[in-house]
Design a protein around this nucleic acid. Sequence first.
DNA 1: AATCGGTTTCAAACCGCTTTGGATGGCGCA
DNA 2: TGCGCCATCCAAAGCGGTTTGAAACCGATT
Lengths: 343, 343
Amino acid sequence: MNLKELAAKLGLSPTTVSRALNGYPEVNESTRERVMAAAKRHNYRPNTRAIRLATGRAFAIGHVIPLATRHEIVNPIFADFIAGAGETYSRNGYDMVLSVVPDENEEDAYRDLKARGSVDGMILHAPLMNDPRIALLHDVGLPFVVHGRATGADLPYSWVDVNNRRAFLRATEFLLDLGHTRIGLVNGLEHMDFAIRRRSGYADALAARGIALDPALMSSDEMTEVAGYRAAGRMLDLPDPPTALLAASMISGMGVRRAVEERGMEIGRDISIIIHDDDLSYMKNGEDVPIFTATRSSVREAGRLAAEMLLSLVAEPAQGPQTRMLEAELIIGQSTGPAPRKG
Amino acid sequence: MNLKELAAKLGLSPTTVSRALNGYPEVNESTRERVMAAAKRHNYRPNTRAIRLATGRAFAIGHVIPLATRHEIVNPIFADFIAGAGETYSRNGYDMVLSVVPDENEEDAYRDLKARGSVDGMILHAPLMNDPRIALLHDVGLPFVVHGRATGADLPYSWVDVNNRRAFLRATEFLLDLGHTRIGLVNGLEHMDFAIRRRSGYADALAARGIALDPALMSSDEMTEVAGYRAAGRMLDLPDPPTALLAASMISGMGVRRAVEERGMEIGRDISIIIHDDDLSYMKNGEDVPIFTATRSSVREAGRLAAEMLLSLVAEPAQGPQTRMLEAELIIGQSTGPAPRKG
DNA sequence: AATCGGTTTCAAACCGCTTTGGATGGCGCA
DNA sequence: TGCGCCATCCAAAGCGGTTTGAAACCGATT
């Protein structure tokens, strides 16, 4: 059942039927109702392919997922972000198109999406320091929103991000307040923008108390269980090991815990752990009582917000870059306690 | 730059240019080359919206993701599957459209995708026992492939699945061979088809050795860290606790490990653990030496295969349902050992 | 009765491609 | 020379909607 057939059945022109369905004012209310009823009765759905061609809009948002080396992106955080964004899209009648491409084709993927008219806007994931994709997307000329920020980008852009620096600053301060002075940082890869910011929050908190940075207490690697395990193990085996560890994610935290427990230490007594918790739906930090003390912010919510922002930019590109900073909360769990006395 | 403009520049008709670019035979080789060159030079990309309307094909595959209650689906397994499938799609010039909808709208989502012509086929995720969606998708009338199987479905359908029953049968047998007789099962939700099959593999292996099922040693819950922790804890606190545990996933396994270590037991000596490892890219089971002994199969590979199968069905729907059974390998890690002697 | 502004409706063009059904021209062959 | 057959190329008609510009209709005003 297409528009023409429906119009024929009603004895109206396609023009009028189209207008009636799309809520244009220049159609008599009684005919509109007639049209609406007929559409429902015949279960009419306009063909999206036709709408897209006619309007020149795709009613779709693109997400490019580079594959191989930067495979960080197919990670739990990404999945939850997608869920949040997808929710917003479908509520607004938009499709979400995911483009999974080999790293080296990432640039092409963005250009293709635009040139072939498959999407009206894009979300940029996992920005790096000085990320060249910001300039690329400007060049491509579609509205876009970055999940995170890209230190060093000179062009303006829209973003939704959590205040990573402040989160890690607060977490570090909290540990310092508990008397810890040897605090290890199990960070994500430090070409990722968020990791840089976290490190700077950590460094600033230490500096404020006059504690020098110790490179041996700072690691940077993927946010996997194994990497967390390895980094924590290295630090714990130092002659002067840390009494507290900051981990970049729930998953890193699991690895840290494994390393700690393997050494027979008790978490919260012998050693304190704080993680950053992205509040993932299937990777909860405990139930009522959190397992880990954590800086928490919802990625899914970030996904929702980024999608809303993007849709608004698509509707009105002239409004210029938007930004939204989310604050993480510091929630206290069982994994932190006062620094053990020396000896 | 669109087809008409390109044709004008070349002094040819749009027809010829279209044919030249699409490899039709009725065009002179020299003009074809001329066209190809011009297309490249002017960076011409056909407008997908127009192609879609003209051909009546969407060049896109749909994945519906129900949100709320069955939120299992936004899980690591899903993400990796998507990555595999997406890879196949983009290699074949297809888009992947994700539709994230509230549970109650799931049926509508499938129908919409079809009625509005947004996709040429769909993937059905996380099938349940007697899953009504199989009949629904038949009714909708688009080619589809199920990731997993749906026990009790009476209609034929295409699927890609791992042999869950055999995987858990083998894992259980392996533990039995090590002398374990009290073996706990930390399963996924048992309305999920794969969980049923795993349980039956477990049950069959025990039955073959004449060991009766003990309900206290079987749990069924979401595959989260917390659920794994809780289930394992309950079993370990029994008067006659298990000496071995089977966990449904890497994440459940983490929870199991937490429960075990909390009780001061040593994994591989006091208690053996086998997990099912979906070989997730960011949740590796250790590096060279696996942390957990595991039944392993790659979800990402399953995603690739399912996508390939679906594309072939889209190209030739007449070929009828295809199926593909994957076998999991049993890999030996550090988490299993002989049953401790009684006493 | 003629004019007019406002409301409804419609025919036709258009979006950018594919595809059908010819046209055209060159060539070999009778 | 004339014919038929390919090999090439093209004009035009879709695909199923939206949108422009104009027509038709209406009651009210002059």
